[in-house]
Design a binder for these strands. Structure first.
Lengths: 190, 190, 190, 190
DNA sequence: AATTAACCGAGACGGTACGTCCCGTCTTATC
DNA sequence: GATAAGACGGGACGTACCGTCTCGGTTAATT
């Protein structure tokens, strides 16, 4: 996108990058609760107004800082074996939600979305999890010949692990092989 | 349970009730984000210290204020027809998560838990959702003769709806009849 | 003064003593600014109400706790030599104001009196300094045959040292011999 | 004096003035005891942090708010007649201590200084009373040819009135003509 | 001996100021 | 005209103390 006439000083790309890096670092170091716009600006060596000029709240900065990493971590290649692919995806999903920095950011944002409609809209506009599962879900639907919609199938796939992690259960307990098996069974037509 | 030695002025039950009522009211009126300890105390006509004396943060007050309502709203009676009971439970669950005040409180707490370990512990200690599903899950497991553990079955039951709601999808779209059907199918042994 | 009928439990003398001791100790340990009614009661092992029952504010407790010591420290015997007696009194006065615990209490009370009328009344009712100087002033007035009133002479005697100490000057610098000399000269008739 | 690099928003002169005015007003309206940093900020229409940014406690604000007035009220012109000048100064001093707003501030600060070392330092750094008396004291010393130091003479001059007022006596009783006379007599060499 | 009444300790109560932190906005000089 | 710096008005935080109250328990003098 072109920046109008180009008059005046152009946006500093280095400032943008510094902010996104600062958010990444601070999220790990101090956690989401202690992540402040003030702290981000200072860590990035950037004026406070510069942050506000490009992002309207910390959720937006965090979203932009983590969405690329999130997509990468959740990407799985299709092997042709639907059940194996589903299991691989579930493993990636759980690793993302419980051990990844980008996953921590996602959980924080999803948490914030529960009481901030702006953040809810931001997340709903492009749901990272749903996007990441689309290919696997499509393959599984095709393989099973299910009558379920993609949306329904996605909820069946992601929901159980999502619930276990978000509601605070230990993630090691999740048997992804069994989960993949039950998912395929649920998909199947009668 | 005895409250220590009984020395000193006893805790004021009316103050306790006033605080819990104030939290309930304020959550509806101003939302979780604008819910402050200061606001709660003032609305309750209670000293600030009195709130801090009995609850260490707003999550604890909110939990105590909503847990009883939550249990009531999620209670379903067993009819003997497992599939019908599951569907009734899912309807209650979705209504709770999307339309109930207690459910709004639960979602706010679950959100807070994603970036506050104290709140996470509080919720994990007695998971309202898991508790509420225990009887239905047990009945469904018995009816299906499944090899799945109760924990796994609970995640299968709650997860899909939970994911749809928490990640911001419209709740009316959820076909609980289909979901109950798929749940029973997933439980079934091969 | 008799306490009415004497019915009911009599005042606990040990509680009274414990409070006064606690005030003395705390004044030295934490200073006047950090001296609180709560702290006094706890240090004395006494209920808060018990303190309030007998003294209406911390100034009153402090006054009662220090007035006896103050009188003792400021007592000087008359030798017959007015100038020498005056000098001895000034030495005692400066020691009291700068090095004594009771003097610290007096200065704190006098400070409080500058912005609390109740404390001002308390101090004015029986001015410790003026009382202590009465005998010496009388002797000096008699020896000099001055036309000055006792009040005026007292102010001439105490004022200079009082000002030096209260306004924060170093006390060692005060030449009490010279001061005594000038005082006698000021008293003398023309 | 230069204020660093000049970067950033400069200090708001209007905020500074508003705070000092608020202190002046509040001291008269509610008295020193009820003078709070919170109240000052609110009355000035200023953020709390803005007050703390420039003054570390209410004593500092009050000092800055009253010192200029104090100097004006205590200024006396020299006529050449030392005794008359001394009397004029004593009249001004007593009026300052007992009837002036700036004098009320000074007494409050001096009171605070008795139990707060920070305030004591603040007052000692530039003693308003001693400064104000310097010219008169010098003139009186020259006229009398005394051997007393300026410090000693100042204490002799100010002390008696200072003691009378601070220890709560009525100010109307002070005979400044007699006091000036005795002061000149005390100064005189033998 | 039983009753009565005031005192005792403990500690919770409604209030309010404290000093700190962060919010999002603004106003500088600099680039 | 965007930037780094940093002051601005505002407001919540969690703590401390205020002076009051309400308990159970104690200690006498009066019945």
């Amino acid at each position: 996108m072109v920046e109008g006439t180009g008059r005046g000083r152009p946006r500093s790309e280095s400032a943008r990058a510094a902010v996104l890096h600062a958010v990444d670092d601070l999220l790990v170091e101090v956690g989401y609760a202690a992540l402040t716009m003030k702290g981000i600006a200072e860590r990035a060596g950037v004026g406070r107004q510069t942050v506000y000029r490009w992002w309207s709240n910390k959720a937006e900065v965090l979203y932009e800082a983590s969405v690329t990493d999130a997509r990468q971590e959740l990407a799985v290649s299709l092997s042709g074996d639907a059940r194996a692919d589903v299991r691989a995806y579930l493993d990636a999903l759980i690793a993302f939600l419980t051990r990844s920095h980008a996953g921590a950011a996602y959980r924080a944002l999803l948490g914030e979305a529960q009481h901030d409609p702006d953040v809810a809209l931001l997340l709903a506009s492009r749901d990272i999890l749903e996007d990441s599962a689309a290919a696997i879900v499509e393959a599984a639907r095709a393989a099973s010949g299910t009558t379920l919609s993609a949306e329904e199938a996605t909820a069946l796939l992601i929901g159980p692990s999502f619930f276990r992690v978000l509601s605070g259960h230990r993630a090691e307990d999740i048997d992804t092989a069994a989960l993949a098996d039950r998912f395929m069974r649920a998909l199947a037509s009668p």
